[in-house]
Amino acid sequence: MFSLFAKSEDSNSPENPSSGITSDVLNFPEGPSTQYVQDLMLGFVHKHNNFLTITQGYADLMLSGSLREDHERNLTTIAKSARNAVELNARVMACASKDLPQFEKVELKSFLQEREMRIKQVAGEQNCEAIIELGHEDGDVHTDPFWLDIILSEVVQNACEASNASRITVTLLPDSETKSGRILEVRDNGDGISEETLSKVFTPFFSTKGREHMGIGLTRAGSLAAKLGALIKIESSSPGTTVLLSLPPQA
């Protein structure tokens, strides 16, 4: 049976000495594995139940009059729980959807320039500084810009949430450093990831960041990347973690 979370064959090759895993574990040759579907559905129900419990509990207390003196704070909690549930729906639907990408030519340098403020905003929400290194070259890729935006946002958010990370750097690597296509690199200055944890990062709802963290971001990113013919490789050492997003070139 196809193994969902097995490391790719070249993850420890001489050219790639760092411990790593690639998103081809989500590129199912015969469709999603039973394990993947079970993990996705069980995690979805569990997370959704948490949000509904918060919403129902605070609403019942307000209706009973027990929290009448602090309606604003309680309504804020209910609204936050509802937003989280909606966000969860969107992420899981992206992992399970049969929608096809809308391919077009995308100039990566222009793409990053247009999204620089958004990347810094995503990082800032996690108290993390974002540095964008565009280089002097541009490169055309064949991809869906909307999906690419989602993938990059998920990778950036995950990098900023790394243990003790205070800075991430997003770099468009020059052609001379790539074998095919173009590569976006996202590096953080955190503590790194253990090999055991690294092998599970694409597992639906796996997280080391506590029960409030959804643990679906990299699963979503990996699923969308597979549909784009792209590949995410995650390498970690101490300190820091590097995510390489390889995109097919414009034909």
Rank of each mutant, 00 (worst) to 15 (best):
T34V: 02
T34N: 14
Q35H: 06
Q35A: 09
Y36A: 13
V37H: 02
V37E: 14
Q38I: 13
D39Q: 02
M41V: 13
M41T: 11
L42P: 08
L42W: 03
G43L: 07
G43M: 00
G43I: 12
G43T: 11
F44R: 05
F44W: 03
V45A: 06
K47Q: 10
H48T: 15
N49P: 00
I54E: 11
T55L: 08
T55I: 13
Q56F: 05
Q56W: 04
G57L: 10
G57R: 00
Y58T: 04
A59D: 06
A59T: 06
A59W: 04
D60F: 07
D60G: 05
L61Y: 15
M62Y: 02
L63D: 13
L63Y: 01
L63C: 07
L63E: 12
S64L: 10
G65Y: 03
S66P: 00
R68Y: 11
E69T: 01
D70H: 06
D70G: 08
D70Q: 08
D70Y: 01
H71N: 13
N74I: 13
N74L: 08
L75E: 13
T76E: 15
T76V: 14
T77L: 11
I78C: 04
I78W: 09
A79F: 15
K80S: 13
A82D: 06
A82F: 12
A82R: 11
A82N: 00
A82S: 05
R83E: 12
N84A: 09
N84F: 12
A85F: 03
V86H: 04
L88T: 11
L88V: 14
L88C: 03
L88P: 02
N89R: 05
N89V: 10
N89D: 02
A90S: 07
A90Q: 08
R91S: 14
M93G: 03
A94G: 08
A94Q: 04
